[in-house]
Every structure is written in C-alpha cells, then in structure tokens.
C-alpha cells in the first residue's frame, strides 16, 4: 500500500484561474435568442382570445402578457452579468467552463475522459458568425459541456487542442 503525500500547493487551482471570456458578439446573440424565446412565449396567451365563451379573457391575456414581459425584461437585464461570468480555462490536464448567474457553476473535464469534441452552430449563432464547442464525456450526468460564443478560429483551435491533449493523455 502506497501512502504518498498529496499537495495542492503547486497546482493552479480552479478558483485562481484566469478565465477566457467569450466573444463580445455572443452577448448580442444570446440577447437575440432570449428575446425570440420570450416573444414565442408571449404568443401563447393570445390563443386564449379564441375562447369566445371565456369571460374576461382580455384581462387574462393582458395580465399574462404583462407577467411574461416583466420576466423577459428581467432575464434580458441580467444577461450582461451572466455573459461577464461565463468563460473557459485550459490547464495542463483538464478544461474548465464557468457559467450561471443565480446558481454559478464550474465544470471541469479531465482530457483523459473526453470522448468526443465537435464544433456546431445554431441559426441565431450563425447570424452572428459564432460557434460552440461540444465536449462529450462518458459521464452519466453532465455528459455534455458546451462552450458557446467562439469565433470559428477559436472553436477549431480548442477542438484541435482537446483532441491532441486527449490523445496524449490516453497514451
């Protein structure tokens, strides 16, 4: 049985890392996507107007729309703060992604556990010329970590780095 001492003094700890921020355009893209989502939600109460027999349906629709509008505005207001917190950091043996505003979270995936890396776009991010890197591991939970808001060059660079490091770690 070995009994080696474990010391964390010579490790760049996750809380001390300098996180690379996402592209500034990502804030605009995220704002557009969020606004579209809330607009979609605000369309739903309009179907209540089709219920002719329902008394006071106008009032119900106005109330629902007001609540949704308020929630949407609050959501849009906190997006810059959420954007400022988001970021990624690469260490010698793992990659860390930080996100969340109400429940800030930090996820770290060791390179040796990475099973798949891919670069993707959705219609909104395509409009802004942004890409996301999907890092997939074999975990039961948190199997997929997405780093959004990257330029094509940056996304490809991260992908290549991850693939190379994963290959080296598994050697």
């Amino acid at each position: 049985m070995t009994n080696r001492q474990i010391s964390l003094d010579n490790i760049d700890r996750v809380e001390n890392l300098t996180f690379v921020p996402l592209e500034k355009k990502y804030l605009k893209a995220h704002t557009a996507a969020t606004a579209l989502a809330w607009l979609g939600l605000m369309l739903l109460p309009l179907f209540i107007l089709l219920a002719d027999e329902l008394d006071g349906r106008n009032l119900i629709v106005i109330c629902a729309e007001a609540v949704l509008l308020a929630a949407g505005l609050v959501n849009l207001a906190i997006l810059p703060k959420a954007y400022a917190y988001k970021g990624y950091a690469v260490r010698e043996h793992d990659i860390t992604y930080r996100s969340g505003i109400v429940f800030p979270k930090t996820v770290t995936i060791p390179f040796c556990k990475v099973q798949q890396v891919s670069v993707r776009q959705n219609p909104v991010s395509r409009m802004f010329g942004l890409y996301a890197v999907d890092v997939v591991s074999g975990a039961q939970m948190l199997a997929e970590t997405v780093i959004p808001g990257l330029t094509r060059e940056k996304a490809e660079e991260i992908k290549s780095l991850l693939i190379e490091r994963t290959r080296n770690e598994n050697r």
Partner: peptide, 26 residues
C-alpha cells in the same frame, strides 16, 4: 470519475456552502 462540478447558490456568499457533483459513467 468522469466530470466534476462545483455549484454555488444565492446563499453561498453568506453560508460559504456549495454543492459538489461528481459523475461516473453509471
């Protein structure tokens, strides 16, 4: 261990408590 996650809550600045998640493949 495949992935590790630390998650704070709005109370973390006062309670100094966080959640730690570790995930294996099963």
């Amino acid at each position: 261990v495949e992935v590790v996650r630390l998650r704070s809550t709005p109370f973390t600045p006062y309670s100094r408590r966080v959640s730690l998640t570790l995930s294996t493949n099963g």
